[in-house]
């Protein structure tokens, strides 16, 4: 019995490994990247929750210096080529979201551009 389970487990692992190759996980342009505010794997799983949390705190209580701010995410992760997190197949937000087929609602209202780039653009 236990041998059967072991065999099954190995089969599953092989299958998932090949799946990753076949389906081609998105290759993302992570912009500046560097040290994320939290463990990347944890962020992949929980970014929407912390963003929601911070969103409510910011809008309703004016707490703007939490580290999970959308603006901070964009500041690091906007592409160095177009300063944006959306708009291309490998954009930081859009790349993953279109792979997972999850609609991003943020950028209808929020700027998708690195804000430091906008300030520079304005002063020029």
């Amino acid at each position: 019995m236990s041998k059967l389970f072991a065999l099954l487990a190995i089969l599953c692992m092989c299958a998932s490994a090949t799946a990753t190759e076949i389906y081609g996980m998105p290759k993302l342009d992570i912009g500046k990247g560097g040290q994320c505010v939290a463990d990347p794997q944890w962020m992949r799983k929980n970014h929407m929750r912390v963003l929601f949390q911070q969103r409510d705190e910011t809008v309703h209580q004016g707490m703007r210096d939490g580290k999970f701010s959308l603006k901070n995410c964009i500041e690091c992760h906007a592409s160095l080529r177009d300063n944006s997190v959306i708009g291309r197949a490998d954009s930081f937000c859009e790349g993953c979201h279109s792979f997972e087929a999850v609609k991003i609602d943020c950028f209808e209202c929020h700027s998708s551009k690195r804000s430091s780039s906008l300030v520079q653009g304005e002063s020029k």
Partner: peptide, 8 residues
């Protein structure tokens, strides 16, 4: 997971 928890 622990480091993420701490930062959070």
């Amino acid at each position: 997971i622990a480091p993420g928890m701490l930062m959070f």
